[in-house]
């Protein structure tokens, strides 16, 4: 019998005598303590500095769906830019001042005949360097499990109903590429400037579970 302890200090008895391994209820504060303890210990041991952690936090706060919205609004306004965005998304993002390194970003385009939706079934890969942290539902078991096998039902749960003649393309972001959706520019936005256009591009549109609403 081996006897190991996991991160929370639980003993694991790897035998088959069905002894009680009651899951211990641990509140969120326990995990908060773990985060603080990791921070302290990793700094003390010299693997990372407080300044490096602070700058990682600042970088995270600088990444929000508004960056993605800015890129989409420009693509809606400028056909040549849209072409460059579809051909080489990292370079096109850089043009508007957004460095998506290290993401190998790919933009998939919705058309009148095609709709795209993004998932990562194996973990929760997401274009963080453009959009920030993924939303809760993107990381959920329900979304990761179901959107590949019954995508139209899942979209309905977001209030998005796709006609049967539309081709639905699911993209499982399972390895090194990261994806965002370029939605169709909605009717009723004629004459809008880029800032106003960006205001209707939400994070959920960029993942493909909803459509922009005017």
């Amino acid at each position: 019998m081996t006897d190991e302890r996991d991160a929370r200090g639980h003993h694991h008895h790897h035998d088959h005598d069905h002894d009680a391994h009651a899951p211990i209820e641990v509140g969120a504060s326990e995990y908060e303590i773990m985060a603080l303890a990791m921070r302290e210990l990793l700094i003390e041991k010299g693997y990372v500095t407080a300044a490096e952690i602070r700058s990682a936090l600042e970088y995270m706060d600088s990444r929000t769906p508004s960056l993605g919205a800015k890129v989409i609004a420009k693509a809606w306004s400028d056909p040549a830019y849209k072409k460059r965005l579809l051909e080489n998304a990292p370079a096109a993002c850089k043009e508007v001042g957004v460095d998506v390194t290290p993401a190998h970003l790919v933009v998939v385009e919705n058309t009148p005949a095609t709709h795209n939706v993004i998932v990562c079934t194996l973990c929760s890969c997401y274009p963080r360097s453009l959009l920030g942290l993924p939303p809760d539902w993107y990381k959920s078991k329900a979304y990761r499990s179901r959107v590949v096998i019954e995508p139209r039902k899942v979209l309905k749960e977001f209030g998005t109903e796709l006609p049967g003649d539309i081709t639905l393309r699911v993209h499982d972001s399972n390895a090194d590429l990261r994806y965002i959706v370029l939605p169709l520019r909605p009717k009723g936005t004629e004459g809008w400037g880029e800032e106003k256009l960006a205001s209707i591009v939400t994070r959920d549109c960029l993942v493909g579970v909803t459509l922009p609403v005017v």
Binding site: A35, M38, S55, A56, L133, D136, W137, S140, Y143, E157
Partner: peptide, 22 residues
């Protein structure tokens, strides 16, 4: 799927920042 979400708490951001900083 529950389509709601919430802003990450500070300790949750710290966890992510630790990974990125390491």
């Amino acid at each position: 799927v529950d389509p709601s979400t919430h802003e990450a708490e500070p300790w949750q951001k710290l966890i992510t920042a630790l990974r990125n900083a390491l």
